[in-house]
Write a protein that binds this DNA or RNA. Structure first.
Lengths: 237, 237
DNA sequence: GCCGATTTGTCCGTATGTATC
DNA sequence: CGATACATACGGACAAATCGG
């Protein structure tokens, strides 16, 4: 995929400062001759850069870099990535404790709450994410059992996504997320290191694989002081 | 813009149920002949649908609808839109109280906190958003004065964005947002109807116009029970 | 103010590859 | 294997905005 390679190359040059904030990257014409690709392919790479908030094209002038290094945050969410990847990217030591691991059949209530159909066979997992020795995130997950044969508690302790992608060959494509706030429950307090926080950031996500099957929904409950959610919106895209 | 018209038409058909959840929309070939457009233009419309979480194309099969009507939320954020638009879309009666309206010169501290340059002339606004008679959101905004000549308190009471777009002809292009949580301050409590909530959802945004100039940064502090933030991530885009 | 060169934006047509059925 | 459907890439044409002379 040529467009993606070009995207990564330009992105890295922006990240390392070759193309600094508020500067223009080389023109389409120049980049086309540099990468020896068609202008449409280059434009696609630019559009991915734009959607990720790195650049903003200005007609008649050029493509402006609007990315700049953010202040250090504790735990940044945003793109599709696993908990382990996010922890590694944020330079944190991470482990996972599996509290619940069971196979269930979706009741009408579970179906209503999760978006699965009543009668679906599901894996029900409850896990706590531990960063630097602190239990900061509590995940309540439901996975479609038919999409994840052979799931075990020890896999869940490592990374379900890695198992799905590397072992089963599944690909995660779309992830819809909703961020809300909720009171901490006594259950939250029992398994998390909540200090005196009484509210949590709640990220509810629905994940679709390459078959368009919603195979996972997870409610992640985050301790407020370690929660950051990034997003870029571009008009018309 | 043909691609955008096609996007809107398909999106509306999905919203009204013509193309229901988990069904395939007509094939590329059929849509091309329906809309009498080129292959590429249609694909662009599909890609916008995908980025907004409405569909997911599956190679060899078709384009699957993965959108379904969500439960009613109190106040949903996500795309680029004004407070008034969001209120209208959520069917709520909305007013704005302007508490602070002044012109300042950015100090080093303000520059550090906002991302503007020290010495920039800024409008500093503090506003409270009132929905259905309840003061639920507190906005602390800084606008680049050179980008918004003639701003007044009464405009701020209505909609700064409408003034920028309709009167000044500015276009809002990119909006970067970060969601965090913060303790409610005594100032928050003084101007908002906070009940007994002691934490707030904080959305910090940086907005760029069509010139690539960051002309606004706003910190919006939301009462937890009225806060919802939507997001869709697609792998590779 | 005008013109021409540059740069991005949109659209079209075609070719080829890959996955599904 | 062939037909269908999406995915990627190329090249060309014209429009729209900017900028300098």
């Amino acid at each position: 995929m040529i467009y993606y390679d070009i995207y990564e190359d330009l992105r890295d040059k922006i990240l390392e400062g070759t193309y600094p904030y508020q500067s223009f990257i080389p023109s389409e014409t120049k980049l086309v001759s540099i990468y020896e690709c068609s202008h449409n392919t280059l434009r696609r790479a630019i559009s991915v850069l734009m959607l990720h908030g790195f650049v903003q094209p200005i007609r008649g002038k050029g493509v402006l870099v609007i990315y700049r290094q953010e202040r250090r945050a504790n735990f940044v969410l945003g793109d599709i990535e696993t908990f382990k990847e996010a922890a590694a990217r944020n330079g944190l030591d991470a482990t996972t404790r599996v509290h619940v691991f069971q196979r269930i059949v979706a009741s009408a209530q579970v179906a209503e709450a999760t978006g699965f159909a009543a009668g679906d066979e599901l894996w029900h997992l409850e896990r706590v994410r531990v960063l630097e020795g602190k239990a900061l995130i509590r995940d309540k997950s439901y996975f479609l059992a038919s999409a994840l044969p052979g799931l075990t508690a020890s896999i869940a302790e490592d990374s379900v996504y890695a198992y799905a992608e590397d072992v089963l060959g599944m690909k995660i494509v779309t992830s819809k997320r909703v961020v809300t706030l909720d009171y901490a429950t006594s259950e939250d307090r029992a398994v998390m290191d909540l200090l005196d926080f009484d509210m949590l950031a709640v990220v509810t996500n629905h994940t679709f694989n390459e078959q368009g099957v919603m195979f996972e929904t997870t409610q992640s409950r985050h301790r407020p002081d370690y929660f950051t959610f990034n997003n870029t919106a571009v008009r018309g895209y």
